[in-house]
């Protein structure tokens, strides 16, 4: 804990009260984001990574969703104690967010310019004219060609990559301390993906802001993240630095994810997968949530849910690193 934490989430629990029952989308998640660093959150669809980020912004639809407990400390203040008006001051100004679908995340009936200046006019005491100048500057910063022309265009006139650049320009326009990127490159071509990641990295360096990068793609993590948190079924299963996790993944799920990355020099017809699916909320195993898909599972994994344990300064939620494992021969 050498650096100062910008964001510290402690035991966050966000549940959804649906007609079919209670869904624990985020179930006791804790992590910290240091100033100027990037935290990667990895996991399959439905593991709770997006809900975690929406919880930080307090944009979870209530009902059915509800933040049931925990703390979200941003610059030392608990965001969960803020009023809606205070949260509005933080959204877009101190914490900004980029979403997965650049196609649908921009409003189709307003020009790019109007949508970028909206954030500026909300948070900064500047005139429309100054806001336009700032917006053009931002468009140049994210390397959009012909910014003056693009300023008056509508989202449908731009390509997917351009739209995501606009989203980035929009979210960075008020110089936020924390940028949350929810799968920012998933909907884009591979080449565009690389450009966008490079851009996010570069702007992060320039502005000194912290980033939370949510993705299911370990390749993205290896490029941008300093630390990694692996989530499974609403819980953290492993936390470590990016180097550590790529060198030596501890949790069988992380190992499985690593094995799923195709290697250039291997000559196989079928790509490796993790067998089975994320368990649905009404079919959650009694023991470890990953147990039904785990090739190393023992009896104890079916009976008890593992706790997050410390292993050499890293955290992992698996019985393999506990005394019980060795006792059960």
């Amino acid at each position: 804990m050498k650096n100062e934490a910008l964001l510290e989430v402690k035991n966050l629990r966000t549940y959804f009260h649906t007609e079919a029952g209670l869904v624990k989308s985020v179930d006791g998640v804790s992590f910290r984001v240091e100033k100027g660093k990037t935290l990667g959150i990895v996991g399959e669809s439905g593991c709770g990574k997006s809900i975690t980020s929406l919880s930080i912004m307090q944009l979870v639809e209530t009902p059915p969703g509800k933040i049931e407990g925990g703390e979200i400390l941003f610059e030392g203040e608990n965001l969960l104690n803020k009023t809606e008006d205070e949260m509005r001051e933080i959204r877009g100004k101190k914490i900004a967010m980029i979403f997965q679908e650049p196609m649908t995340s921009l409003n189709p009936v307003y020009t790019i310019g109007k949508q970028i200046t909206e954030a500026l006019l909300l948070h900064e005491k500047i005139s429309k004219h100054e806001a336009k100048a700032r917006a053009l500057e931002m468009l140049k910063l994210v390397r959009i060609p012909l910014p003056e022309k693009r300023f008056n265009e509508y989202p449908h006139q731009l390509s997917g990559g351009m739209r995501q650049r606009v989203m980035i320009a929009m979210s960075l326009s008020c110089n936020p301390q924390l940028l949350i990127c929810d799968e920012p490159t998933t909907a884009l071509d591979v080449t565009i993906q690389a450009q966008i990641l490079e851009l996010i990295n570069e702007l992060k360096e320039k502005t000194g802001s912290s980033v939370i990068m949510i993705t299911h793609d370990l390749g993205v993590i290896s490029e941008v993240a300093d630390d990694v948190m692996v989530m499974y079924a609403g819980k953290v299963v492993e936390q470590a630095s990016t180097d550590e996790i790529f060198e030596n993944p501890l949790h069988p799920y992380t190992v499985g994810l690593m094995n799923c990355i195709p290697k250039l020099n291997s000559d196989v017809d079928t790509l490796p997968t993790i067998k089975g699916m994320v368990p649905s909320f009404d079919n959650m195993p009694k023991g470890c949530a990953f147990c039904p898909r785990c090739s190393m599972a023992k009896k104890i994994c079916e009976q008890k849910a593992p706790e997050l344990v410390d292993v050499d300064g890293r955290k992992v939620r698996c019985f393999r690193y506990t005394k019980e494992w060795k006792e059960e021969a």
């Binding site: 912004m57 944009l59 809606e84 509005r88 001051e89 933080i90 959204r91 877009g92 100004k93 900004a96 967010m97 979403f99 679908e101 649908t104 995340s105 921009l106 409003n107 189709p108 307003y110 909206e118 954030a119 909300l122 948070h123 989203m167 929009m170 979210s171």
Partner: peptide
């Protein structure tokens, strides 16, 4: 729609989001 969430994430008021977006 996603763009409504985007507008909220910018810090716009709920009422403004409803009326404008």
């Amino acid at each position: 729609q996603d763009y409504i969430r985007t507008a909220r994430a910018k810090g716009a008021k709920r009422r403004a989001v409803i009326i404008h977006h």
